[in-house]
Structure formats: structure tokens, C-alpha cells
Design a protein around this nucleic acid. Structure first.
Lengths: 256, 256
DNA sequence: CAGTGGTCTAGACCACCTC
DNA sequence: AGGTGGTCTAGACCACTGA
């Protein structure tokens, strides 16, 4: 495929021919911006250059940059703020706390939440975790467990698996000291930003530690939410099993 | 708010002032198109006029129409097909069968499905149903039950409540004769098109008819999916409780 | 006030479909 | 060949923000 783009070096107005792998200009721009994000050049919370600026750098019209940014804003990678600029999306923003937590109260508003870390240990990936995280068996991993309280009651028990090499110094102390959300911590401390996730939901019987921690009888029904979360480049970087107590709460989903 | 638009009558190029309820032109266009859809002027599956045509009728530029249509395509109200035209989205399209059914097989592809209607009766809305459907208690409703098979096994047991006045002649025979999906039937036969839905998920114990029909022991865990579906104008027109057997299958959700 | 994103226009050309 | 949606441009002006 022909390209008139080289990062930050204006190029002549050549354009696409009828090539089999045709990709419109704005998509090439989008990819360039994506690379800047993935490389950490522009960090979460930062403002990226103005549309006019980007148009100049890339040697395209502002409308083309605009379309690229539009798509990325739609995908929650960027956030536009009129009059101020365009910013790299961040989990630090309390507004985006519920982007990956589809939990709601059956009645009324969801009370404030607390995350209680229970344990954090290191080990080697078994077959299942290795497959989910795209690792080899035996690769180092981190496993952690935690409890989510809403109001006075525990509602979610999470078991979380992470690639060990990306989260070198993650420990129970680190988790306890942090007052941010988990993804916010991952982002600021480890430079790992979650941008997408796949969830599989099952109804299961409560057993073992999940039943204990959620303070329910064995064999009570629990909602099991298995999640694989991805960072830039569709790279899986978290596998999680969450047990949700759906008595006063539920998993909320909007279908369009 | 000023408007230069009157349906299908070109107007002078007046534009917005700094009014408190400012709405951009393309949004006004969008609303006009929406009205055509809601009124049944343009029916599911139909082609709507070309962008150039619409631009002429509305007295705006093609780019403005384009932006309106873009948004509606994003919301699955319209479907664009390059070289052919823009069409009103329809549930008749087998491709959109899974738009409102987030069910997937744990392994492999989902086998073909069959819908088995079990019963269909008329009655009066109780408090809960009335509230969900925006009716008054005692208003006529239709209740139906059905079973969804995937391959040889029943996987979903649905209990569905509809406003009686919108589905006058809906009966068990009607359901048995139809080989389409439910929403497809609603659309073609009753002119009721679902465009959006809210779902609440719970893990519950199997009991009564749901346990029988899904062929599981009482107290087995089942995934309960409560859905309110809306048609144009955010009018609720269906309330549904679906019991999902999540052994070989799961509820799949993608978070962005 | 200057700088940012947001809207709107008019026109050119490309890619895809159908006749 | 003619129609449709898809891309790209250049330029004008509006709305919002903050110094």
C-alpha cells in the first residue's frame, strides 16, 4: 500500500491507487496516533497536539485528522474537550470508574465502594492462565485476590492474574497503600493501560473462599464474570474471575 | 430555537444564534429522519433517499446529511452499503440475529437454534409488568413462554410480556407458524421495531417451570436476564425474563 | 483576546454496485 | 455509464475555555 505519511515529516500529496490493502488516509493517521499512545510518547491524562498542529505535522487537512480523532474518541482512547484540547483517556478519571464495572444497585444509587486487597502472590503460569494471557506455561505471573465492598456489604470477590514481568514490584503492600482503582494504579505505576475487555458470564454455585468472603452459604448462586483485558495492540494483560453477589445488585448491560 | 428546516421544504440558510437550546443542524436532520422512521414512512429493509437527495430536500449540504446518517448508522438504526444506498435496519437480516442475544458457546461455534413456543395468553398487567412497560395496572397484556434450543439441548427459557394493544392477534399459532426470529416477527407483522434494550443479570436458583423446561435440578444455578426493550422514542414495548443455562454456554459481553 | 474543538459548506475525486 | 456511499480538501464561522 502506498503511503504519503511518515511520522512527523510532511510528504507530497500522493494518494491511494486501487491497491488490494487500501486503507484510507484517516486510518493511517489513526494508526500513527495509536503508535504514539502505545509507545508512551503521549501519556494518559496528557493533552495531545491540536488538530491544526497534527494536520500540519502529518501533511493532511484538519478534516482528515478530525475523522481519525473522532474514531479514537468513540473507542474511549481519547477524550475531546471543547475549547481545551484533546486528551489521552485515563482510568484515573473517576468518571470512567464504571467503564469496566457493569455493576448497579437494584434500587437507588450505588453506594461508595471500597476495594479490600486480601492477598498477592507470585508463581508460574499454569496451562489455563498461560493461554488466557498469551504466555508460556511456567512464565512468571502475579495472582491477587480482593473484595469489593459497596456500603457495608461485600459484593464482588475477584481473583486476578497478571503477567509477572509487567508488574515487577506489585505486592500486597502496594495494593493496600493505593487509594485509586486498580486500573488507575496499573496505569500510573506500571504504565499498563487497559483499553478493552472481553467478559464471559456464568451462573455458578458458591464454594470455598468465594463463599466465605462474600459471606454466603455454599451452593448459593453467584454470578461468575470471567474477564480478559487488553492493552494497546490487543495484547492480553489481565485475566480475572469475579464472583458477584446478585442479591441487592446486578450486572447491568445496555444493548444497542 | 431557530430552525431552517421544515420537512421536505427547502428553507433559507438561516442558522443558529446563541440560543440556550442550541442543537446543531445535523442533529435536526437526524430528528427529521428519525420521525420518518417512527412514522413508518420508511420501513425496515427499505432504502432511504440518497444523501444528495436528502441534502436537497432539507436544504443543507451533503456533508451535514452525512453526519446525521453516520450517527444513525452507529446506533444501528440505518445500514450503509457502498454503491447501493442507505437502508433502514431490520431484524429480518440474519446477520443481526445476535444483536440482542449475547449468547456464545464455551467452545466452538454456536450450533443452529430453534425457538419452541410453549404458551401464549392474554391478561391484565400487574404492578410490576405495568411499571416496566409504562402501562397502568389492569391494561391488557400478552404473556408468552418459549424455549430456545441450541443443537439438541434447551439453553434459554423466556417469559415475555407485551402490551396487548400493540399485538392484537398474537397467539400460540402465530408463533408456531413463524420461522423468523421473534423481533423479526414483531417488526414485519406488528410494525413494532426494537431498537434498544436494557438488561439486568442475576444468578438465581432454578425452580418451577424454568427448571423443568431446561431439564435441570431445582436449585441449580441459572443466569437470569431481565430485559426491557424499547422502540422509537424510547418507548418500552417488551419486558422479558430469560433463564440461561450456563453450562456449555455463556453470556458474552465486550467492554470498550 | 487567542487558541481549542465543533459545525457547515462546496467541490473534487475514488470505490463499489447495477444496468 | 450513471448512481450510490466513502474520502479528502480548503475555508468560513461558531462555541467554549482560560489568561
Amino acid at each position: 500500500m502506498k503511503s504519503r505519511l511518515s511520522s512527523f515529516h510532511p510528504a507530497p500529496p500522493v494518494n491511494f491507487s486501487s491497491s488490494p490493502t487500501f486503507s484510507p488516509l484517516y486510518r493511517q493517521i489513526k494508526n500513527l496516533i495509536m503508535e504514539q499512545l502505545a509507545s508512551g510518547e503521549w501519556r494518559p491524562g496528557d493533552a495531545i497536539p491540536s488538530e491544526a498542529d497534527l494536520a500540519l505535522r502529518f501533511g493532511v487537512s484538519q478534516g482528515t485528522v478530525r475523522k481519525a480523532v473522532d474514531e479514537m474518541a468513540m473507542e474511549n482512547l481519547l477524550v475531546r474537550r471543547q475549547g481545551k484540547g484533546t486528551f489521552v483517556a485515563t482510568h484515573d478519571d473517576p468518571h470512567s470508574f464504571f467503564r469496566f464495572l457493569r455493576l448497579a444497585a437494584n434500587e437507588g444509587k450505588l453506594p461508595v465502594s471500597r476495594s479490600i486487597p486480601l492477598e498477592c502472590s507470585r508463581g508460574c503460569a499454569g496451562a489455563e492462565v498461560a493461554q488466557m494471557l498469551g504466555l508460556k506455561q511456567g512464565d512468571p505471573i502475579v495472582m491477587m485476590r480482593r473484595l469489593l465492598y459497596f456500603g457495608d456489604a461485600p459484593v464482588v470477590f475477584d481473583e486476578i492474574y497478571l503477567p509477572g514481568d509487567l508488574f515487577q514490584d506489585l505486592s500486597l503492600e502496594t495494593l493496600k497503600e493505593s487509594d485509586k482503582s486498580l486500573y488507575s494504579l496499573f496505569e500510573t505505576r506500571y504504565g499498563v493501560r487497559m483499553i478493552r475487555a472481553d467478559e464471559r458470564l456464568f451462573a455458578v454455585r458458591a464454594e470455598g473462599i468465594a463463599a466465605q468472603q462474600l459471606n454466603v452459604e455454599e451452593d448459593s448462586p453467584l454470578l461468575l464474570v470471567e474477564r480478559v483485558a487488553f492493552t494497546y495492540g490487543d495484547k492480553p494483560v489481565e485475566w480475572r474471575r469475579g464472583f458477584y453477589l446478585t442479591r441487592e445488585h446486578h450486572y447491568h448491560n445496555e444493548l444497542n
